[in-house]
Simulated scan of single mutants.
Amino acid sequence: MRFTPASIALAVLLTTVSSVGLSQRPDAQISPLSVEWAHKGIVASKAGNYQAATDALETALAVDPRNRNAYVELAQVARAQGLQGKAIRLYREALLLDPTDVGALVGQGEAMVEKGAIAKARENLAQAKNVCKADCAAVGKLAAAIDKGPPATVLSAKEGVTVPKVAETETP
């Protein structure tokens, strides 16, 4: 009789814990709606409509945040727009879902090279070489980008720049 409240509480706990796992999808199953939105984003990206691509890919991620391909494609759109920092972050999100994704490792490394972070890009190259077992053309592409170095920034001097005149102040 004195074990009845404890056994009831334990039975309720076990019932609750075991029923939570029944409603979850496996990690490998991505929502079809998310895949559809990601496909729309890829089509818009190939057409050069980066704003529509960004909107569609972000919608895909809102529907299912486990869609690694949407992260990778969104990162490529960010790189095409010159937003390397955002691209690096998005590639990192994809790598959190699958650390062995060679495409995400190489893309992040290339974005790092474009940003000027050569040492970090070399780390990505080493990881990609460890992961890549077959068809490592992308790894060679990253190695070539690292050897080439970051793109040169062009600084232009504006001609005819006027220096603002400062009003003289009286000294007391």
Rank of each mutant, 00 (worst) to 15 (best):
L90W: 06
R92V: 02
E110R: 12
M112T: 04
A80L: 08
Q84C: 10
A87E: 04
E123M: 08
G85A: 15
R89S: 11
K86I: 07
V113R: 09
A119R: 10
V113P: 10
A87P: 07
Y91N: 04
L96Y: 07
A111R: 05
A117G: 05
L97M: 10
A87Q: 05
L125M: 06
L83Q: 15
G82M: 09
A121P: 05
P99S: 14
L90Y: 04
Q127S: 12
A117L: 11
E114F: 15
V113F: 06
G103A: 08
L125N: 10
E114H: 14
A80N: 15
V106A: 12
Q108R: 14
E93L: 01
G85C: 11
V102N: 04
Q108F: 04
D101A: 04
N124C: 10
Y91I: 00
A126E: 13
P99I: 08
L83G: 14
L83M: 15
A104G: 09
Y91A: 04
E123H: 10
P99H: 13
G116C: 14
V77L: 07
E93Q: 05
I88P: 00
L105A: 07
A121R: 08
Q127W: 04
L96F: 08
G109D: 13
A117Q: 12
T100V: 01
K115A: 15
L96D: 11
V106F: 02
L105R: 07
T100H: 04
Q81M: 12
G103M: 00
R79C: 07
G103W: 00
A126D: 10
G116A: 15
Q81S: 15
K120N: 14
G82I: 02
A111G: 13
E114R: 15
G82L: 02
L105P: 03
K120G: 12
G109V: 12
P99F: 08
L83W: 11
T100R: 07
L95A: 07
L96H: 06
A94T: 04
E114K: 15
L97H: 09
L90D: 06
E110Y: 01
G107F: 06
G109Q: 12
R89E: 04
R122C: 03
K86A: 11
L125Y: 08
E114D: 15
V77I: 09
G103S: 10
L96M: 02
A104D: 08
Q84T: 11
G107T: 12
A87G: 09
K86R: 12
A94H: 05
D101N: 11
L125F: 07
E110I: 14
I118C: 07
G103E: 02
A78R: 14
V113L: 09
G82R: 10
E123W: 01
K120H: 13
Q81P: 13
L96S: 03
L105D: 06
K115F: 13
V102I: 08
D98R: 09
T100Y: 05
E93Y: 01
L95T: 02
G82W: 05
A126M: 03
G103R: 01
E93V: 00
L97G: 07
A117M: 13
K86M: 05
T100M: 02
V77C: 13
